[in-house]
Design a protein around this nucleic acid. Structure first.
Lengths: 334, 334
DNA sequence: GACAGTTTATGGACCGGTCCAAAGAAGGGC
DNA sequence: GCCCTTCTTTGGACCGGTCCATAAACTGTC
């Protein structure tokens, strides 16, 4: 009744369980006819290896834990795609844990992965409660993807080059002829990098006095409010660079509600190139930070670190690319 | 060096490993001072149970596999939220496998779960390659959430009541005074249920001749094209009910591109109440099918089925709710 | 203080694999 | 036919828990 084990297969094939194990692990040291017998028995019994037993004995699980804090953010999903494909090439599984989905678990997401004895850990984005993560990272090979924040002795980091990306966006607006340009800033390290870079580029063009920064957050609402503040101020900007696409969409709503046409009266750039920006209705000019690529590289770094846990931590920046769509254009000449 | 085991804890606490096991599983049959000693040893050594060993011996994993085919669809994520919370209440874990993320794995998603010996399976939405699923469902307690399709002897189904939801949407438009109403249809069983219900309601109002159905799909592009066809036809509708929010957004773009104002010149209803519909910029009237609730119920059904695998399959429909926003209004009177 | 009854603690089998030392079979040379 | 080498195959220990039958330690009674 219960699932067949390796011993059942052995008995059926008339060999020892050790031989079955050898065949199943693809050993060359097995006479062909025995191999056939074993494979036939496996087929007939519908044998499936028991992962728990295997990993108990092998002392590894061939799986890596992926911690992220919001599956609702399409950016993460894109990254997961790249991550998963490269991990799979290395015979590894991905186990997802969403900080938000599992918030009812308290902070013990990493605890679960510890008990599961994952072979590696990938932290995607900026995580809350990273103390836990730090503790885990001392035992388990760990890579941080998509955030630059927790830098630890043996933890690699892969992220988009936020400074460069923000520069791309700002330069684009300046090139179009805009002078009075605002930035809707985000939080965290990424937010700061983008803001600083925006200010630096503006400064380099001698536009320091025309640069405004309005604090927003990662939400649509935040972008909306920031934009309302920007547009009701005495000197309104002719172009706005938003921290991310979501904030950008909020900003877009505000602009249209206040009667401005985009891009005629106002140019707008987002960040992340999520599918929001690709919606025909929004068609946002944005910065693509290559999430898929970031995911792949994170996987690669993790694989290396699993082979050699004590190597020096590496930081890789992925080069972003400007994606020009319909929300930017030259400033109106009137 | 390697992680402490239950025996290390036992030695440190001066008791047998069995006693440690008892304490860890919360037995009452342990003298308080011994319990303290064990807990102290656990703390000092930083002991963490080994999930593989435990499940090998217990012959269960306390985890359920969740199969879904597109994490990019925000609707699924909402459902996962409900699913996860209820599963957690029952001491169960969720292991996610995305059919699209893992397409490179071939069809063996369920195989992985079989090897992992998950205690249950939840299929979210309509899955490709459901042969595999069907096979697995004969061994493993299984529940289908969010789709009505694969009905099997011992598989429960939870879904939104698509007929009712579509009726809500259609009635809403009729109530507003619309007569010439179109539907952008989706694929699959859900698509058919919604379309049929739309037609039935139109018929009930004696509007059969004014009802149009245009085939779309689940994408923005499909919605866009369908809308273009609808609006360039000789008699354009004054209201459109789209299969889902994404198609609705595409339809919205088409309408605005053709110079129509929503809702003045055209009313539009979506389906799913995803965060797309909630974006201030789109502010789509839509049908909320209570994904969170569906997720919770799916978890509940699975828990029941795990207790009694042979009980008759149950089908639960969750009642949708109309969410009126800015994309619908009375038809223009001119 | 002996005995029965109840709590509490323990050793060892078991879950289903991997791995290794050693046994067995096959082949080659003389 | 015998010995040596190289391939194959095997039994048994082990991974780290759970669980159960039994042992040990208390309690209370007469």
């Amino acid at each position: 009744m219960s699932a067949p084990t390796i011993r059942d297969v052995a008995e059926r094939a008339g060999v020892s369980k050790s031989l079955v194990s050898l065949v199943l692990r693809g050993s060359e040291q097995v006479r062909p006819e025995k191999r056939q017998a074993v494979l036939a028995a496996v087929e007939e019994l519908g044998y499936r290896p028991n992962a728990a037993a295997r990993s108990l004995s092998e002392r590894r699980t061939r799986s890596v834990g992926v911690l992220l804090n919001d599956l609702r953010n399409p950016w993460f999903v894109e990254l997961l795609d790249g991550l998963g494909s490269r991990l799979h090439e290395n015979g590894l599984h991905m186990m997802l844990a969403d900080g938000r989905l599992n918030r009812h678990l308290g902070e013990d997401l990493t605890r679960i992965f510890t008990e599961l004895r994952v072979d590696g850990l990938v932290a995607v984005g900026t995580l809350p409660g990273s103390d836990e993560l730090l503790a885990a990272a001392t035992h388990i090979p760990t890579v941080v993807a998509g955030a630059v924040e927790p830098v630890l002795p043996h933890v690699d980091v892969v992220a988009g080059d936020d400074s460069y990306g923000a520069a791309l966006a700002t330069e684009h607006l300046v090139d179009l002829g805009h002078r009075r340009i605002a930035h809707i800033a985000g939080q965290g390290v990424a937010g700061e990098l983008r803001r600083t870079s925006f200010e630096k580029v503006m400064h380099a063009h001698g536009l320091t006095d025309l640069a405004t920064v309005e604090q927003g957050d990662h939400t649509e609402e935040g972008g909306y409010r920031a934009m309302v503040r920007l547009l009701t101020a005495p000197q309104r900007p002719t172009a706005v660079f938003a921290f991310n696409d979501i904030a950008g969409v909020g900003a877009l709503s505000a602009a249209e509600e206040l009667g401005l046409q985009v891009p005629r009266d106002l140019s707008l750039v987002g960040y992340d190139n999520t599918y929001l920006a690709r919606l025909r209705h929004l068609w946002l000019t944005t910065v693509d930070n290559g999430s898929h690529d970031i995911g792949r590289r994170a996987a690669q770094l993790l694989v290396h670190r699993m082979k050699d846990p004590r190597r020096a931590a590496e930081t890789v920046l992925s080069e972003p690319r400007l994606e020009v769509r319909g929300s930017t254009g030259p400033p109106s000449t009137e």
